[in-house]
Computed example of a mutant assay.
Amino acid sequence: MTQVQVKRLAYIQIETEDVGAWVVFARDVLACEVVQGSNDREAWLRVDDRPWRIHLTTGPRNDIVVLGLEADCLEDVEAMHARLAEAGHAVRGGTAEECRARGVQALRHFVDPAGLAVELSFGSLVRPQQPFHAPVAHGGFVTDTQGLGHVMLVVENVAEVQRFYCGLLGFTISDYVSTRDYGGRQGDFVFMRCNERHHSLAIGFLPIGRRLGHLMLQVREFDDVGHALDRVHRHGALQTRALGRHINDRMFSFYVRSPSGAQIEYGWGGLEVEEASHVVRTYDVTSAWGHQHLTK
């Protein structure tokens, strides 16, 4: 019997004081497609054949405000709704208007133990007749069954949040990192998966004053990491971590600061987990090599 669970990261919503700057950064540095109708108050970004994957809205928080998760069927959405309610979490069904706005067949709203708004949906609109069109020469992003990418969320109550996502939404722990030198400070992180991608969600505490530590976008072609790094320097964006390869998911990547302050990891070659043979491990470094922190 198939386990009832979230199957992928569908989308995120970021509130930023400068939507216009974010749009320029996403288009000119990250190679995202800006959806027609976007403006300086609200914008949508594409990375595949979905109508959008990143929703930018105007506000003072400069942080993630919605985490969009996706199930494979309505029955799974309803089962997780019941599971959440039984555990004492308030769940609200999305209205027809909200479903149309998100481009989904069904939607549930709730809040995780760290206070982040979560949306659970299924049946997302896809537009293969309108393929992703990158604004620069680009081989595309790894999404499809693996979802948007991954997010690293900064939370104070790590154990409670981990139990929430694993116990109620069906995530599985891939591994842990506990290091004394995460940019000169202690870093303890839990990495969780919901499909073959090594992790769609990581959590840990860092004293950075925001919920979104980073968003990872994975490219299909190795050279697109290098081309993106060239664009970072050409457009004057701030690279925050050097090129490197993570020790757990094997991602070859670098990090760059977005206009709202959160980092974007831009990577290639992430590990796809084989469930039958995967062993949960703890590592005491984040990277096999590289990824030096370039800013304080």
Rank of each mutant, 00 (worst) to 15 (best):
M1I: 11
Q3V: 15
K7Y: 06
A10V: 09
Y11K: 04
I14P: 06
A21D: 04
V23L: 00
A26D: 07
R27Y: 13
D28K: 09
E33Y: 15
G37H: 09
G37F: 14
G37S: 06
S38G: 07
N39I: 12
E42K: 01
E42I: 11
E42N: 06
L45E: 13
V47Q: 05
D48K: 08
P51W: 08
R53E: 08
R53S: 09
I54K: 02
I54H: 11
L56F: 04
L56G: 02
P60Q: 02
P60S: 01
R61E: 15
D63E: 11
L67P: 02
L69C: 12
E70P: 10
D72S: 14
C73H: 14
D76M: 03
E78A: 05
A79N: 12
H81E: 14
A82Y: 03
A85Y: 07
E86M: 05
A87S: 15
G88Y: 10
H89D: 15
A90G: 15
T95I: 02
E98I: 06
R102L: 09
V104H: 06
A106Y: 07
L107R: 10
D112I: 14
P113R: 10
G115V: 11
L116A: 14
E119K: 00
E119P: 03
L120G: 09
S121M: 05
G123M: 09
S124K: 14
L125P: 12
F132N: 13
H133W: 13
H133L: 02
A137C: 15
D144Y: 04
D144C: 00
Q146P: 01
G147Y: 07
G147P: 04
M152S: 08
V154H: 00
V155M: 12
V155A: 12
Q162M: 07
R163Q: 07
F164D: 01
C166L: 02
L168N: 00
G170V: 04
I173A: 11
D175K: 11
V177P: 05
V177E: 05
T179D: 08
D181V: 10
F189I: 12
M192G: 01
R193L: 06
N195A: 10
H198V: 06
S200W: 04
A202Q: 06
I203S: 04
I208P: 01
R210E: 15
R211G: 03
R211L: 10
M216H: 13
L217C: 15
L217S: 04
V219Y: 10
D224T: 07
V225Y: 10
A228N: 03
L229G: 07
V232M: 05
H233E: 15
L238R: 14
R241F: 00
G244R: 06
G244H: 07
G244F: 07
R245M: 14
N248D: 12
R250T: 07
M251N: 03
M251A: 04
F252Q: 03
F254K: 02
V256P: 04
G261W: 01
Q263P: 10
Y266F: 14
G269E: 11
G269A: 08
E272K: 08
E272A: 15
V273Q: 06
V273R: 05
E275G: 07
S277K: 01
H278I: 13
R281H: 12
R281K: 11
R281Q: 14
T282G: 05
T286D: 09
T286A: 05
S287P: 08
S287R: 00
A288F: 09
A288E: 15
W289M: 05
W289T: 00
Q292P: 04
T295Y: 07
K296F: 02
